[in-house]
Design a binder for these strands. Sequence first.
DNA 1: CTTAACTTTCAGAAATTTCTGAAAATTGTA
DNA 2: TACAATTTTCAGAAATTTCTGAAAGTTAAG
Lengths: 184, 184
Amino acid sequence: MKLSSQAQAFVLHFGEMGNRWGFNRTVGQMFALLTIHPSPLNAEQLAQALKISRGNVSMGLKELQAWRLIELQHQPGDRKDYFTAAGSIWELARTVFEERRKRELDPTLSLLRQLLLNEPQDEQEVQAQEKIQEVYSLLELLEEFANTLSKLDHDDLLRLMKLGSGIVKLLELKSKMTGGKTSE
Amino acid sequence: MKLSSQAQAFVLHFGEMGNRWGFNRTVGQMFALLTIHPSPLNAEQLAQALKISRGNVSMGLKELQAWRLIELQHQPGDRKDYFTAAGSIWELARTVFEERRKRELDPTLSLLRQLLLNEPQDEQEVQAQEKIQEVYSLLELLEEFANTLSKLDHDDLLRLMKLGSGIVKLLELKSKMTGGKTSE
DNA sequence: CTTAACTTTCAGAAATTTCTGAAAATTGTA
DNA sequence: TACAATTTTCAGAAATTTCTGAAAGTTAAG
């Protein structure tokens, strides 16, 4: 378990970006290491490579499994649990995307839905309600769009992402064919 | 500065989601309050409404300005600084999207670009390099796609997001016209 | 059943982040 | 310029998150 300086830098960086991506430093490092390492690793190896405690590794693995980002494997004749990244880079990215959608969007949608059930009691509340409705509509649309993207197969997703400004032309094309704008 | 229970719940929730969206509790609360409140608020009012210190408000306002999510206004005959959310809900969402792209993608792209400049020294490093290249390509594509989306005007964005599974048909349509798949 | 290999748990320690409030800095007005 | 109103800063306090490591739990093999 000797890391090249390349791998080292990669792992440390993902540790630092961890916060922003939704997990903590060591979880980020563990994920990066399992992603970049060619073969599965066990808890002991992770602890040693990252210089963190065995307990911390155990907790981190649990979290990465909750994110569905790693999977357990067994080596024949070895009782230890070995882990690897759950799939290709693209699959991992998809999973992160989906999990983040769940964690960042769903709780808010659920609360706002709740709030919109109440009857506003005065002018103040009517105005607040309107704002809440706007936020809700936007987030709901975003959620649906995210779902749509999640369901695209790899080729379609790739094509879509590569469209660039061609996307506008395509939208106009569609517009002409069906003869309508969504905002009308 | 009396908050309806609606507004209260909205503000508290955005405080709690704050972490996940890239800022801390009180910054999240301040942003929510400035978004839902019909008129601009000054620092004193924010401190009072959220029961936080004046200094904390000052720091929070600074951060929200760095995010370009609020803007300063002045009331005639009043020396205090008043703040409101910087634009409509849609504009705010766009801004959050762009700022997050900057914070979550750009540093990583920059590091990976750096790592890819090094000549791999052995087989291990060649393999690592390949993985890094994969991650880089994906993130770069994501960044470009995010840029494309950012540049779409409101109507186009709305149309795109509402396409749902229609998006596949549109992609196929394009495919037929130009006669190619991106993956070939 | 027993044991040894391994994993998980969790109380408290350490590290990090956030918050307070008093002092310093800034700014508009006279 | 002087001053009062307002905002900013920042050292230390408080709150929160993360981490450790020893103990408890689990599991496969004999």
